[in-house]
Amino acid sequence: MKLFSTALITLTIATIGFTAASADEVTKPVAGTFSGASEHITTGGVQIVKTADGGAVVILDSNFSLDGAPDPRVGFGKDGVYAEAADLGELQNLTGVQVYIVPASVNVDDFNEVYIWCLEFGVPLGVAQIS
């Protein structure tokens, strides 16, 4: 998986309102690659970037793609279980780069998976193990 450059991550974080002023304030991202689930095709990579101020963002990479489904969401899970309380919101697009701000109430260290989740049917559409 192609990782984003530190400059792009810093620019993305600055653009969405975090106070990161330099690459030194961004921790090394954790990353994963999506695999499809529930007979859906989900591909591409994901990164979770934490900043020195305690904030975090989830970035779906330019190769991200979902074949479509009703009410797709982005969120976290652990060991094969989606965590509804860690829902980050609606999937913005079926393809391409997307950025999701992780609310302060969600500790990304508590999870080892990023999900694309179908809220309507309660099934995973894609899962990425993160490390």
Results as ranks from 00 to 15, higher is better:
14 A>K: 07
53 D>R: 13
16 I>F: 05
46 V>E: 01
16 I>Q: 04
50 K>N: 10
37 A>D: 13
45 G>I: 03
54 G>I: 09
31 A>F: 02
19 T>I: 01
31 A>N: 02
55 G>C: 03
33 T>S: 14
26 V>M: 09
50 K>I: 00
56 A>W: 03
35 S>T: 15
59 I>C: 10
29 P>K: 06
56 A>M: 04
42 T>H: 06
36 G>F: 02
13 I>W: 04
31 A>C: 04
27 T>K: 10
37 A>Q: 14
25 E>L: 06
22 S>A: 11
25 E>S: 13
12 T>F: 04
19 T>A: 03
41 I>R: 14
13 I>G: 00
35 S>Q: 12
29 P>Q: 00
16 I>A: 05
14 A>L: 04
21 A>M: 08
13 I>C: 14
13 I>M: 05
38 S>L: 07
31 A>I: 03
34 F>L: 04
16 I>H: 00
53 D>W: 11
53 D>I: 14
24 D>G: 10
40 H>D: 05
52 A>F: 06
22 S>I: 01
17 G>V: 10
37 A>L: 12
24 D>V: 06
15 T>V: 03
18 F>T: 15
54 G>W: 03
49 V>C: 14
15 T>C: 02
23 A>D: 15
33 T>M: 11
21 A>V: 09
56 A>H: 03
51 T>R: 07
23 A>F: 03
32 G>D: 09
28 K>P: 10
41 I>A: 13
30 V>I: 14
38 S>R: 00
28 K>L: 10
53 D>Y: 13
10 T>Q: 14
58 V>W: 05
27 T>P: 01
59 I>H: 07
40 H>W: 01
21 A>R: 13
11 L>D: 12
36 G>W: 00
41 I>K: 11
40 H>I: 04
32 G>I: 11
54 G>K: 05
30 V>G: 00
51 T>W: 00
27 T>W: 07
59 I>D: 03
42 T>E: 03
38 S>N: 08
54 G>D: 08
39 E>M: 06
35 S>I: 11
14 A>Q: 11
10 T>L: 15
26 V>Q: 02
36 G>P: 05
21 A>W: 02
23 A>I: 13
19 T>R: 04
13 I>E: 09
40 H>F: 05
41 I>C: 05
54 G>T: 04
33 T>Y: 08
47 Q>C: 08
40 H>V: 04
42 T>S: 10
56 A>C: 06
30 V>D: 00
30 V>N: 01
49 V>N: 08
53 D>M: 15
